[in-house]
Computed example of a mutant assay.
Amino acid sequence: MTSDPSQDTSDKAVEAASQRVLDALRVRNWRLATAESCTAGRLAGALAAGNGAGAALQGGFVCYSKDAKVRMLGLPPETLQSSTGAVTETVARLMAENARQRSGAEIAVAVTGVLGPSCDEDGNPVGLVEIACARAGTTRHRRNHWLEAAPDILISATILSALELVAEMLAD
């Protein structure tokens, strides 16, 4: 999906989406884990700032480098050595599934992508983001290809997209 990341990516939109996810997690008595690359922990930070985060947020993995994805989340090195590297649907799915398993959380969300200011080492363009959400027996994926924008706008857009995917999985 290619889209304009500047549609409501305000701090208030992120706060509201985070709170909706936290509330839905608490209703289910579930905990969430995050696995983040391009957002570098900001997704977990947005959730941790919400009311009731202590009951719903299990924790997170910040795996910015390929090596960290292998060491911390157990991704097979060969998965990261493809021509597109760490920004693939497969990598996002494995990050979410392994974060869920390793953390003991009922649900996990993962983000990997390129948020600028330039392309990554594998030539993936700024604005390409892969997001996955995993719970027992089900993993969903979402690809965003944002129009190039300032990194802070892309980060907020990515966090909102990830929170929307989690909310969808919790609504099922």
Results as ranks from 00 to 15, higher is better:
Gly113Met: 03
Glu130Cys: 12
Cys119Trp: 13
Glu148Ile: 13
Leu163Gly: 02
Ile153Trp: 06
Trp146Phe: 15
Arg140Pro: 04
Glu121His: 11
Ala136Asp: 08
Gly127Trp: 03
Ala150Ser: 13
Thr158Asp: 10
Glu148Ser: 12
Asn124Leu: 04
Cys119Arg: 14
Gly113Val: 08
Leu154Phe: 11
Glu148Trp: 10
Ser161Val: 01
Pro125His: 10
Trp146Cys: 08
Arg143Ile: 05
Ala136Leu: 11
Asn144Ser: 11
Ile131Gly: 06
Glu130Tyr: 02
Gly137Tyr: 08
Glu121Ile: 13
Leu115Ser: 04
Glu148Ala: 15
Glu121Gln: 15
Asp120Gln: 10
His141Leu: 00
Ser118Leu: 10
Asp122Phe: 14
Leu128Ile: 06
Ser118Thr: 14
Ala157Thr: 09
Glu148Asp: 13
Ala150Ile: 01
Asn124Ile: 10
Pro117Met: 09
Ser118Gln: 13
Leu115Arg: 00
Thr112Trp: 07
Ser156Gln: 14
Arg135Gly: 08
Thr158Glu: 06
Gly137Thr: 02
Pro151Leu: 05
Thr138Phe: 03
Gly113Ile: 02
Ser118Ile: 12
Arg142Ser: 09
Ile131Asp: 02
Gly137Trp: 05
Ala132Met: 01
His141Ala: 09
Asp122Leu: 11
Asp120Ala: 07
Trp146Thr: 04
Ile159Cys: 08
Ala134Arg: 01
Pro151Gln: 08
Arg143Asn: 03
Ile159Asn: 02
Ala132Ile: 07
Val129Gly: 00
Leu128Lys: 15
Val126Leu: 10
Val114Asn: 01
